[in-house]
Design a protein around this nucleic acid. Structure first.
Lengths: 226, 226
DNA sequence: GCGTTCCTTATTGTATACAAAATCGACCCG
DNA sequence: CGGGTCGATTTTGTATACAATAAGGAACGC
């Protein structure tokens, strides 16, 4: 983490995830270098990594842009997540132990509290949700599965939209986590897989709704300007 | 493809896949640069890409080595392939059209001929097998699924070992492809998925057997030397 | 003899300069 | 006025030099 390229990577990544660098925006190497206070060499390394993360794309002429995802793209990603995380849940059910189970319960309890509070603490919800899923993934004990899923999960479009989910979706999410925990306690892999797959698919619908809401809001603003 | 980094990437990649660069071997940037006739800068770009392909790994101190895969690692990869290609097969069954179906039949016919010839044409078998699976994958119409699977499929350990499969395994593979085609003709997604998943899992067993055979052969050679 | 410390050497990380390529705009021609 | 070509400018690709860091080995003390 001490290397300049790592620093640049984190910095640019944060800018993309926060939305300061908007989807479709051009990323000039020199400009980024000046912004990060390093030369172009580590910037280029960082851009390669961001490209592997699918956070940026390169045109045929090698210019870099922040990735812009269509709804179809996001749907594609959620379908893959549903399958991969379902697989992870099934494996995790076989390999589950008491310590992990206890940690899962703790995270989901805190997640439930975050949802119940008034107003709901969405940041806390997202953090606990993240930990919950990460723990299951780690329990599945497949290093490559973790790598594959990481690039699918860490997508800014999804994270940004998550702040606009309906409260009812958060509640449902909490309940489904409990069902997962129950499946783990019984060591029922197929059941855990089925719940997880549905859980992710419903998360896509929550995303889709929130996304359309946001789009509509933007259109309204444009109308006001005109 | 005209860029030096692309040239270096292909060149090093070929050396790894062919086995000229053995698993575990150290990859010094300067040595590679001299070998490829370019400077270290494009070499570094190439190494990043090879790392993303999981063809090389980097130690904590950032030195690069050719990936060495344990049997467990390979098993992990095959399990993921079984799931992902199974998913692809199910989707492909829904999206299948006559042109693709015809192409699949053609590839499998040629594959069968390669297996039946005496001696069996393993190169041809592998090429047709590759095309067959790639075609199904493309028909599934999920760009990200293709990306995820690519890194799992293009692994030199697997390709090298493939040349030592038993003929009976090649015959079975041919038959299973026919069953897949039948499932596609009926538009039966779940069936196609089940066949594909089993197909890949059995391919792992073929790999495992061939691998042990090769290990035993190596041990014999060592004994002869002593 | 074993382990430790320090120094030498090899290797990777970064900055800079320059070359190659692409984009954009002005200008000209039809 | 539209289209296309050429050139100026921007942007990316590569080479090289140097700095930082890690590996390997010799000398030293225990």
């Amino acid at each position: 983490m001490s290397r300049a390229s790592d620093k640049a990577y984190s910095q640019i990544r944060e800018l993309i995830i926060s939305g300061d660098l908007a989807p479709g925006e051009a990323l000039g190497e020199e400009a980024l270098a000046e912004m990060c206070g390093v030369s172009r060499t580590p910037i280029r390394e960082a851009l390669r990594r961001l490209e592997a993360d699918m956070l940026i794309r390169k045109t045929e002429s090698q210019r870099s842009y922040v990735s812009d995802w269509s709804l179809d793209d996001v749907h594609d990603v959620f379908e893959l997540r549903a399958m991969l995380e379902g697989h992870a849940a099934r494996r995790a059910a076989d390999l589950m132990d008491d310590a992990v189970l206890k940690a899962l319960k703790m995270h989901n309890t805190r997640l439930g509290e975050a949802v119940s509070s008034d107003p709901p603490n969405v940041e806390e919800f997202l953090a606990r949700n993240r930990e919950f899923h990460a723990l299951i993934l780690r329990t599945a004990a497949s290093p490559r599965l973790e790598i594959l899923l990481q690039t699918l999960i860490e997508q800014p479009v999804i994270w940004r939209t998550a702040h606009h989910y309906e409260v009812s979706e958060l509640v449902r999410s909490h309940q489904e986590h409990d069902e997962l925990i129950a499946a783990f306690e019984r060591g029922d892999g197929p059941w855990a897989e089925a719940i997880m797959t549905g859980h992710i698919r419903r998360a896509f619908h929550a995303y889709s709704d929130a996304h359309q809401e946001m789009m509509a809001a933007e259109t309204d603003q444009e109308k006001k300007r005109a």
